[in-house]
Protein backbone atom coordinates (compact mmCIF):
# COMPACT_ATOMS: atom_id res chain seq x y z
CA UNK A 1 0.00 0.00 0.00
CA UNK A 2 2.86 2.30 0.89
CA UNK A 3 4.57 1.38 -2.37
CA UNK A 4 1.44 2.28 -4.31
CA UNK A 5 1.28 5.63 -2.54
CA UNK A 6 4.88 6.35 -3.46
CA UNK A 7 4.15 5.30 -7.03
CA UNK A 8 1.15 7.61 -7.17
CA UNK A 9 3.21 10.39 -5.65
CA UNK A 10 5.77 9.94 -8.41
CA UNK A 11 2.99 10.38 -10.94
CA UNK A 12 1.77 13.47 -9.20
CA UNK A 13 5.25 15.00 -9.16
CA UNK A 14 5.69 14.03 -12.81
CA UNK A 15 2.37 15.71 -13.63
CA UNK A 16 3.34 18.84 -11.75
CA UNK A 17 6.74 19.04 -13.41
CA UNK A 18 5.35 18.60 -16.92
CA UNK A 19 2.57 21.09 -16.18
CA UNK A 20 5.17 23.63 -15.12
CA UNK A 21 7.02 23.05 -18.37
CA UNK A 22 3.79 23.55 -20.33
CA UNK A 23 2.98 26.77 -18.54
CA UNK A 24 6.53 28.05 -18.93
CA UNK A 25 6.60 27.05 -22.58
CA UNK A 26 3.44 28.94 -23.41
CA UNK A 27 4.18 32.00 -21.31
CA UNK A 28 5.10 35.13 -23.20
CA UNK A 29 8.48 36.62 -22.38
CA UNK A 30 7.14 40.15 -22.03
CA UNK A 31 6.37 39.86 -18.35
CA UNK A 32 7.18 43.22 -16.84
CA UNK A 33 6.85 42.32 -13.20
CA UNK A 34 9.07 44.10 -10.72
CA UNK A 35 12.41 42.93 -9.51
CA UNK A 36 11.42 42.56 -5.87
CA UNK A 37 11.79 38.79 -6.14
CA UNK A 38 15.57 39.24 -6.06
CA UNK A 39 16.83 38.17 -2.64
CA UNK A 40 17.48 41.40 -0.71
CA UNK A 41 20.70 41.98 1.13
CA UNK A 42 19.15 44.74 3.20
CA UNK A 43 15.85 46.57 3.48
CA UNK A 44 15.44 50.31 3.20
CA UNK A 45 12.10 51.88 4.06
CA UNK A 46 11.02 55.46 3.78
CA UNK A 47 7.92 56.64 5.58
CA UNK A 48 6.42 59.86 4.25
CA UNK A 49 4.22 61.71 6.70
CA UNK A 50 1.98 64.43 5.30
CA UNK A 51 1.28 67.43 7.48
CA UNK A 52 -0.05 70.96 7.48
CA UNK A 53 2.25 73.04 9.60
CA UNK A 54 2.36 71.21 12.92
CA UNK A 55 -0.84 69.24 12.31
CA UNK A 56 -0.88 65.77 10.82
CA UNK A 57 -2.60 65.57 7.44
CA UNK A 58 -6.00 63.91 7.40
CA UNK A 59 -7.81 63.56 4.13
CA UNK A 60 -11.24 65.19 3.89
CA UNK A 61 -10.73 67.02 7.15
CA UNK A 62 -10.22 70.77 7.43
CA UNK A 63 -6.75 71.82 8.54
CA UNK A 64 -5.85 75.37 9.45
CA UNK A 65 -2.85 77.21 8.05
CA UNK A 66 -0.85 79.58 10.21
CA UNK A 67 -2.49 82.58 8.50
CA UNK A 68 -5.94 81.44 9.68
CA UNK A 69 -7.19 80.12 6.35
CA UNK A 70 -7.87 76.43 6.06
CA UNK A 71 -7.67 73.60 3.55
CA UNK A 72 -9.57 70.37 3.12
CA UNK A 73 -7.70 67.99 0.82
CA UNK A 74 -9.88 65.49 -0.99
CA UNK A 75 -7.19 63.88 -3.08
CA UNK A 76 -3.40 63.94 -3.01
CA UNK A 77 -1.29 61.56 -5.04
CA UNK A 78 2.25 61.69 -6.35
CA UNK A 79 5.28 59.76 -7.58
CA UNK A 80 8.77 59.46 -6.21
CA UNK A 81 11.36 57.96 -8.51
CA UNK A 82 15.04 57.25 -8.87
CA UNK A 83 15.38 56.80 -5.12
CA UNK A 84 19.05 56.31 -4.23
CA UNK A 85 21.15 55.94 -1.13
CA UNK A 86 24.29 58.06 -1.09
CA UNK A 87 27.38 56.35 0.32
CA UNK A 88 29.98 58.23 2.29
CA UNK A 89 32.23 58.40 -0.79
CA UNK A 90 29.42 60.03 -2.78
CA UNK A 91 28.56 57.00 -4.90
CA UNK A 92 24.90 56.16 -5.15
CA UNK A 93 22.99 52.91 -4.74
CA UNK A 94 19.55 52.58 -6.36
CA UNK A 95 16.80 51.31 -4.08
CA UNK A 96 13.57 52.07 -5.96
CA UNK A 97 12.94 53.25 -9.52
CA UNK A 98 9.35 54.40 -9.02
CA UNK A 99 6.89 54.55 -6.13
CA UNK A 100 3.28 55.72 -6.15
CA UNK A 101 1.83 57.43 -3.11
CA UNK A 102 -1.82 58.11 -2.52
CA UNK A 103 -3.63 59.85 0.26
CA UNK A 104 -6.80 59.87 -1.76
CA UNK A 105 -8.20 56.39 -2.05
CA UNK A 106 -10.13 55.97 1.16
CA UNK A 107 -7.22 56.84 3.39
CA UNK A 108 -8.90 59.04 5.98
CA UNK A 109 -6.60 58.34 8.86
CA UNK A 110 -3.33 60.14 9.39
CA UNK A 111 -1.49 59.70 6.16
CA UNK A 112 1.65 57.62 6.38
CA UNK A 113 2.99 56.58 3.04
CA UNK A 114 5.68 53.97 2.62
CA UNK A 115 8.38 53.22 0.11
CA UNK A 116 10.47 50.06 0.30
CA UNK A 117 13.65 49.15 -1.51
CA UNK A 118 16.46 46.63 -1.33
CA UNK A 119 19.92 48.12 -1.85
CA UNK A 120 22.34 45.61 -3.28
CA UNK A 121 25.31 46.98 -1.33
CA UNK A 122 25.90 47.18 2.39
CA UNK A 123 27.64 50.10 3.99
CA UNK A 124 27.50 53.51 5.56
CA UNK A 125 25.26 56.07 3.97
CA UNK A 126 25.02 59.83 4.42
CA UNK A 127 21.91 60.81 2.46
CA UNK A 128 18.96 59.76 0.34
CA UNK A 129 18.36 61.28 -3.09
CA UNK A 130 15.17 61.08 -5.07
CA UNK A 131 13.10 62.63 -7.82
CA UNK A 132 9.53 63.85 -7.53
CA UNK A 133 7.52 62.69 -10.51
CA UNK A 134 8.94 60.55 -13.28
CA UNK A 135 12.03 60.68 -15.48
CA UNK A 136 11.34 61.07 -19.19
CA UNK A 137 11.62 57.38 -20.05
CA UNK A 138 9.10 56.32 -17.42
CA UNK A 139 6.90 59.33 -18.16
CA UNK A 140 6.55 58.08 -21.74
CA UNK A 141 5.25 54.69 -20.59
CA UNK A 142 2.06 53.24 -22.00
CA UNK A 143 -0.10 52.64 -18.89
CA UNK A 144 -2.02 49.85 -20.60
CA UNK A 145 1.17 47.87 -21.19
CA UNK A 146 1.70 46.78 -17.58
CA UNK A 147 0.47 43.30 -16.72
CA UNK A 148 0.19 43.85 -12.99
CA UNK A 149 -2.67 46.03 -11.79
CA UNK A 150 -0.42 46.95 -8.87
CA UNK A 151 2.28 48.52 -10.99
CA UNK A 152 2.74 52.20 -10.03
CA UNK A 153 2.24 53.25 -13.65
CA UNK A 154 -0.74 51.02 -14.47
CA UNK A 155 -3.84 52.53 -16.10
CA UNK A 156 -5.87 51.86 -12.97
CA UNK A 157 -3.81 54.41 -11.00
CA UNK A 158 -5.55 57.11 -13.03
CA UNK A 159 -2.39 59.21 -13.01
CA UNK A 160 -2.00 59.23 -16.79
CA UNK A 161 -3.00 62.08 -19.05
CA UNK A 162 -4.23 60.26 -22.14
CA UNK A 163 -4.31 63.37 -24.32
CA UNK A 164 -0.64 64.09 -23.66
CA UNK A 165 0.49 60.48 -23.24
CA UNK A 166 2.28 61.56 -20.06
CA UNK A 167 1.77 61.17 -16.34
CA UNK A 168 0.76 63.59 -13.68
CA UNK A 169 3.65 63.88 -11.21
CA UNK A 170 1.43 65.28 -8.47
CA UNK A 171 -2.35 65.44 -8.30
CA UNK A 172 -4.03 67.50 -5.62
CA UNK A 173 -7.72 68.35 -5.38
CA UNK A 174 -8.84 70.36 -2.40
CA UNK A 175 -11.22 73.00 -1.07
CA UNK A 176 -10.20 76.12 0.74
CA UNK A 177 -11.85 78.09 3.50
CA UNK A 178 -10.52 81.40 2.34
CA UNK A 179 -12.56 83.48 4.82
CA UNK A 180 -11.86 81.37 7.87
CA UNK A 181 -15.58 80.86 8.53
CA UNK A 182 -15.60 77.08 8.40
CA UNK A 183 -16.97 76.84 4.89
CA UNK A 184 -14.74 75.15 2.37
CA UNK A 185 -16.10 76.88 -0.68
CA UNK A 186 -13.12 77.52 -2.91
CA UNK A 187 -12.01 74.66 -5.15
CA UNK A 188 -8.33 74.30 -5.93
CA UNK A 189 -6.95 71.85 -8.49
CA UNK A 190 -3.27 71.28 -9.06
CA UNK A 191 -2.51 68.56 -11.61
CA UNK A 192 1.17 68.88 -12.23
CA UNK A 193 3.68 67.14 -14.46
CA UNK A 194 6.10 67.85 -17.28
CA UNK A 195 9.38 66.39 -18.44
CA UNK A 196 11.00 69.78 -18.04
CA UNK A 197 10.06 69.92 -14.35
CA UNK A 198 11.62 66.66 -13.34
CA UNK A 199 14.31 67.01 -10.71
CA UNK A 200 15.92 63.94 -9.17
CA UNK A 201 18.36 65.82 -6.97
CA UNK A 202 16.18 66.21 -3.88
CA UNK A 203 18.51 65.29 -1.06
CA UNK A 204 17.56 64.26 2.44
CA UNK A 205 20.59 64.17 4.71
CA UNK A 206 20.67 61.21 7.09
CA UNK A 207 23.57 59.11 8.33
CA UNK A 208 22.99 55.41 8.80
CA UNK A 209 24.58 52.02 8.38
CA UNK A 210 22.78 49.27 6.55
CA UNK A 211 24.11 45.74 6.26
CA UNK A 212 22.90 42.40 4.99
CA UNK A 213 19.84 41.20 6.83
CA UNK A 214 19.25 44.58 8.44
CA UNK A 215 16.57 47.15 7.80
CA UNK A 216 16.50 50.90 8.13
CA UNK A 217 13.50 53.20 8.12
CA UNK A 218 13.80 56.87 7.19
CA UNK A 219 11.06 59.21 8.36
CA UNK A 220 10.32 62.13 6.07
CA UNK A 221 7.48 64.58 5.81
CA UNK A 222 5.79 66.87 3.32
CA UNK A 223 4.37 70.07 4.77
CA UNK A 224 1.55 71.42 2.59
CA UNK A 225 1.81 74.77 4.34
CA UNK A 226 5.20 75.20 2.69
CA UNK A 227 3.48 75.16 -0.68
CA UNK A 228 0.93 77.86 0.07
CA UNK A 229 2.13 79.89 3.04
CA UNK A 230 5.72 79.54 4.14
CA UNK A 231 7.72 78.76 1.01
CA UNK A 232 10.05 81.09 -0.84
CA UNK A 233 7.45 81.53 -3.60
CA UNK A 234 4.13 80.72 -1.91
CA UNK A 235 1.12 80.14 -4.14
CA UNK A 236 -1.86 82.40 -3.48
CA UNK A 237 -4.54 79.76 -3.85
CA UNK A 238 -7.27 82.40 -3.84
CA UNK A 239 -6.11 83.46 -7.29
CA UNK A 240 -3.87 80.70 -8.58
CA UNK A 241 -6.31 77.90 -7.98
CA UNK A 242 -6.25 75.73 -11.10
CA UNK A 243 -3.67 74.12 -13.32
CA UNK A 244 -3.44 71.10 -15.56
CA UNK A 245 0.07 72.16 -16.63
CA UNK A 246 -1.23 73.31 -20.02
CA UNK A 247 -1.01 76.70 -21.68
CA UNK A 248 -1.50 79.47 -19.13
CA UNK A 249 -1.32 76.98 -16.27
CA UNK A 250 2.25 75.91 -17.06
CA UNK A 251 4.00 78.47 -14.86
CA UNK A 252 1.69 77.79 -11.93
CA UNK A 253 2.33 74.07 -12.30
CA UNK A 254 6.07 74.64 -12.30
CA UNK A 255 5.81 76.76 -9.14
CA UNK A 256 3.67 74.12 -7.43
CA UNK A 257 6.18 71.42 -8.37
CA UNK A 258 9.10 73.45 -7.05
CA UNK A 259 7.27 74.20 -3.81
CA UNK A 260 6.24 70.57 -3.37
CA UNK A 261 9.85 69.41 -3.74
CA UNK A 262 10.94 72.04 -1.21
CA UNK A 263 8.21 70.91 1.19
CA UNK A 264 9.82 67.48 1.54
CA UNK A 265 11.80 67.51 4.78
Amino acid sequence: MMTMKVHKMKHVWLALAVSMLIVAGCKKDDDNGDSSTTPPVATFEMQVNLKVGTQPFVRNQGMTFSDGSAIRVENLRFYFSDVRLVREDGTEVMVNDVAYFTAGDGLDEEAQLMLTGYPEQSGNYKAVKLGVGLPADLNASDPSSFDSNDHPLHTFRNMHWGWAAKYKFIEMDARMDTLGNGTFDHSVVYHVGHDDFYDNSKTIDCEFELNTGESFKLFTSIDLEAIFINGTDPIDYRQDDLTHTTNSGYNLAERYYTNFVSAIQ
Binding site: A140, D142, P143, H160, W161, G162, W163, A164, A165
Partner: peptide, 18 residues
Protein backbone atom coordinates in the same frame (compact mmCIF):
# COMPACT_ATOMS: atom_id res chain seq x y z
CA UNK B 1 -4.83 67.21 -33.90
CA UNK B 2 -2.02 68.24 -31.57
CA UNK B 3 -0.05 65.03 -31.99
CA UNK B 4 0.17 64.48 -28.26
CA UNK B 5 -0.12 60.70 -28.45
CA UNK B 6 2.60 58.58 -30.06
CA UNK B 7 0.82 55.25 -30.66
CA UNK B 8 -2.59 54.01 -31.73
CA UNK B 9 -2.71 51.90 -28.59
CA UNK B 10 -2.36 54.95 -26.34
CA UNK B 11 -4.80 56.89 -28.49
CA UNK B 12 -7.50 54.44 -27.42
CA UNK B 13 -7.16 55.62 -23.81
CA UNK B 14 -8.11 59.22 -24.52
CA UNK B 15 -11.89 59.05 -25.03
CA UNK B 16 -12.22 57.11 -21.77
CA UNK B 17 -10.55 59.94 -19.85
CA UNK B 18 -12.39 62.74 -21.60
Amino acid sequence: RDGGVPTLEQQILVPFDD
